[in-house]
Amino acid sequence: MKLIVERQNLYSCLQKIRPFIGKKTTMPILSHILLEARENELIMMATDLELAFKGSCPAEVFAPGQLPVPGKTLYDFVRTLEYEKIELKENESHWLEIIGGNSYLCLATLPPDEFPTFPEIEHFHLISFPSELFRKAIMKTYFSMAKEDVDTNLAGLCLEKQKDKLCFVSTDTYRLSYMEIPYTDLDLLQFDKSIMLPRKAVLEILRLCSTGMLQIGFDNSAGVIKTDGYIFYFRLKENKFPEYHSIIPKKSEYEAKIPKRILKDILKRTSVLITDKFKVADFLFYRDRLIVKAENPAVGKIEENLDIEFSGDKLKMAFNISFLLDILNVMDSEEFIFGLNTERTPCIITGKNDIGFKALIMPVIERE
Score class of each variant (00 low, 15 high):
Met1Thr: 02
Ile4Met: 10
Glu6Gly: 06
Gln8Ala: 13
Asn9Gly: 08
Tyr11Ser: 00
Ser12Asp: 15
Cys13Trp: 01
Gln15Thr: 13
Lys16Trp: 06
Lys16Thr: 06
Lys16Pro: 00
Phe20Gly: 01
Thr25Ala: 06
Thr25Tyr: 08
Met27Ser: 11
Pro28Arg: 03
His32Leu: 10
Ala37Trp: 02
Glu41Ala: 10
Ile43Arg: 08
Met44Pro: 07
Met45Trp: 06
Glu60Phe: 03
Ala63Asp: 13
Pro68Val: 05
Tyr75Gln: 04
Phe77Asp: 07
Phe77Met: 08
Val78Phe: 05
Thr80Ala: 11
Leu81Cys: 09
Tyr83Gly: 11
Glu84Gln: 13
Glu84Ala: 05
Lys85Thr: 03
Glu90Gly: 01
Glu92Met: 12
Ser93Met: 15
Leu96Lys: 04
Glu97Val: 02
Glu97Asn: 05
Ala108Val: 13
Leu110Glu: 10
Leu110His: 08
Pro111Asn: 12
Pro112Arg: 05
Pro116Met: 14
His125Phe: 09
Ser128Val: 09
Leu133Asp: 06
Phe134Arg: 00
Ile138Asn: 01
Met139Asn: 12
Lys140His: 07
Lys147Tyr: 15
Lys147Pro: 10
Asp149Thr: 04
Asp149Asn: 09
Thr152Gly: 04
Leu154Trp: 04
Ala155Gly: 06
Leu159Gly: 01
Lys161Glu: 10
Lys161Asn: 11
Lys161Ser: 05
Leu166Val: 02
Thr171Trp: 03
Ser177Lys: 00
Tyr178Phe: 14
Ile181Ser: 02
Tyr183Phe: 15
Asp185Asn: 15
Leu188Arg: 13
Phe191Ala: 02
Asp192Phe: 01
Ile195Gln: 04
Leu197Cys: 10
Lys200Glu: 15
Leu206Phe: 04
Arg207Asp: 10
Arg207Pro: 05
Ser210Cys: 09
Met213Phe: 11
Ser221His: 14
Ala222Cys: 15
Val224Ile: 08
Lys226Glu: 03
Lys226Gln: 06
Asp228Ser: 13
Phe232Glu: 02
His245Cys: 03
Ile247Asn: 04
Ile248Thr: 02
Ile248Glu: 03
Ile248Asp: 00
Ser252Ala: 12
Pro259Cys: 10
Arg261Asp: 15
Leu263Arg: 05
Arg269Ser: 11
Val272Glu: 09
Ile274Thr: 09
Lys277Ala: 09
Lys279Pro: 06
Val280His: 07
Phe283Val: 05
Ala294Val: 02
Glu295Ile: 06
Glu304Met: 09
Leu306Phe: 11
Asp307Ala: 11
Ile308Lys: 03
Ile308Trp: 00
Lys314Ser: 11
Met317Gly: 06
Ser322Leu: 15
Phe323Val: 03
Leu324Tyr: 01
Leu325Cys: 05
Asp326Met: 08
Ile327Trp: 05
Asn329Arg: 08
Asp332Leu: 12
Ser333Val: 04
Gly339Cys: 09
Ile349Ser: 01
Asp354Thr: 04
Ile355Thr: 03
Phe357Cys: 00
Ala359Gly: 06
